[in-house]
């Protein structure tokens, strides 16, 4: 039974969430755009949104790799 491997995977998910939170707060949040007047807030929000989506995609990609690495022996995936 691969129950123990699933515990490892959930722990990995937790670590990735904490790291993702750190990247969001320390790198993403301070990004500000200036020089476009009233559009500054919109531009910076759009850039943050695009980077956030990129981070989510990267997070899913890493998780997918971890999944394959942990469960390859149990499941032919």
């Amino acid at each position: 039974m691969s129950g123990s491997s699933i515990f490892v995977f959930i722990f990995a998910m937790w670590i990735l969430i904490i790291i993702g939170g750190g990247i969001t707060v320390l790198i993403l949040a301070p990004i500000t755009i200036s020089g476009y007047g009233e559009f500054d807030l919109i531009f910076s929000s759009v850039i943050k949104a695009v980077i956030s989506i990129g981070l989510v995609v990267t997070w899913i990609f890493i998780l997918s790799r971890v999944k394959n690495w942990i469960f390859r022996s149990q499941l032919k995936i």
Binding site: M1, S2, G3, S5, I6, F7, I10, F71, S73, Q74, L75, I77
Partner: peptide, 26 residues
């Protein structure tokens, strides 16, 4: 591929109740 399939993969068949308890432990 689902959580239940992964719990069962590579091991003996389990009853529905046993699988439920594995999910609760997780």
């Amino acid at each position: 591929v689902t959580l239940v399939r992964l719990i069962l993969a590579g091991g003996r068949p389990l009853s529905e109740k046993e699988i439920g308890f594995v999910i609760f432990k997780l």
